[in-house]
Amino acid sequence: MTYLARSPWVIHYDASSCNGCDIEVLACLTPLYDIERFGIINTGNPKHADVFLVTGSINEQNKEVIKNIYNQIPEPKVVVAIGICATSGGVFRECYNVMGGIDTMIPVDVYVPGCAARPEMIIDGVVKALGILEEKWAKMEAGKK
């Protein structure tokens, strides 16, 4: 494990989520689940972040915001789509204002299904994302040589 995967910082954005997954993401940070023990810190600044957690699906107004945040995160970066809405649109798939899952706008590395996704699953998804982050970093290093 490199230093990167030992202390990844995450940024969370609520696309058009119902809040169910958002409060579960926050619950991961609090004493019972405590993902800080993996060195994970929640930041509000995209330039500090390595992992992008998105809940909810893409709509007309937030698609630019998501792209903006994604572009500001430095390489290597991983995206975790949390909840069934972020994965595919979920029960709201047929709504006129829902364009679909997060992968219609930015590349997604890990999908965490569930409505609402449980904290254990979110942690599992983030840990899985760390492995991918590591791979991406190794590839970047190899490219430099």
Binding site: D14, A15, S16, C18, Q61, N62, V65, C95, N97
Partner: peptide, 24 residues
């Protein structure tokens, strides 16, 4: 930013099914 337009789903979901949407 989080407008989904779920009220319009009543046209596609029967009223007992719509409880799931209302909860969300």
């Amino acid at each position: 930013y989080v407008h989904r337009g779920l009220e319009k789903l009543v046209e596609k979901r029967e009223y007992p099914q719509y409880v799931y949407i209302a909860e969300r």
